[in-house]
């Protein structure tokens, strides 16, 4: 079947078999390999992307479901060679070790800040509770999100 959707700000179309997952569509058809597969059952969050602004596990979404929607992946967060403040703060805070969970973590945090620019620690933890990380112990990730929220707030004020 033929689907159309907006992928990282560009209109795209694809001819897909109805059974494939959004994760496979992104990784295989569009070669956007920043989206990772860690479990395939919606538990690890490595495959997180934004669908119409909401964080979803792309291993649980059928490609057919994204027809007419907007999808944002890690590749769409970066502006050319310029990092998004979240990405920059992930690096500054040491929130990346092996980096396998990082794209998903960034997208879950991105969705949070879009919805709630002023999150508490608890709200940050809730937002990334569906993203497993085996390396970092999460603390530096939480710090990175906090710092980003602070910076973005300052920018808005100015």
């Amino acid at each position: 079947m033929e689907i159309k959707f907006v992928l990282n700000g560009k209109e795209v179309a694809a001819d897909i078999s109805p059974s494939i997952r959004l994760l496979d569509l992104l990784r295989e058809k569009f070669e956007l390999t920043g989206t990772k597969e860690g479990c395939g059952v919606g538990e690890c969050g490595a495959c997180t992307v934004l669908m119409n602004g909401k964080a979803v596990n792309s291993c649980l979404v059928l490609a057919a479901q994204v027809n007419n929607s907007e999808i944002l992946t890690i590749e769409g967060i970066t502006n050319g060679e310029e990092l998004h403040p979240l990405q920059k703060n992930f690096l500054l805070n040491g929130a990346v070790q092996c980096g396998f969970c990082s794209p998903g973590m960034v997208l879950s945090s991105y969705a949070l800040l879009e919805e709630n620019p002023n999150p508490t620690d608890e709200e940050i933890k809730d937002a990334i509770a569906g993203n497993l990380c085996r390396c970092t112990g999460y603390k530096q990730i939480i710090d990175a999100v906090k710092q980003t929220a602070k910076e973005l707030k300052v920018e808005v004020k100015v």
Binding site: L32, F90, L91, G94
Partner: peptide
């Protein structure tokens, strides 16, 4: 000192290539 890892940019942009990539 605290220094940002040299492979950080690749990883945080999703460009780093893991085996299945």
């Amino acid at each position: 000192k605290s220094v940002i890892r040299e492979d950080g940019f690749e990883k945080i942009t999703g460009r780093a290539k893991f085996a299945d990539d």
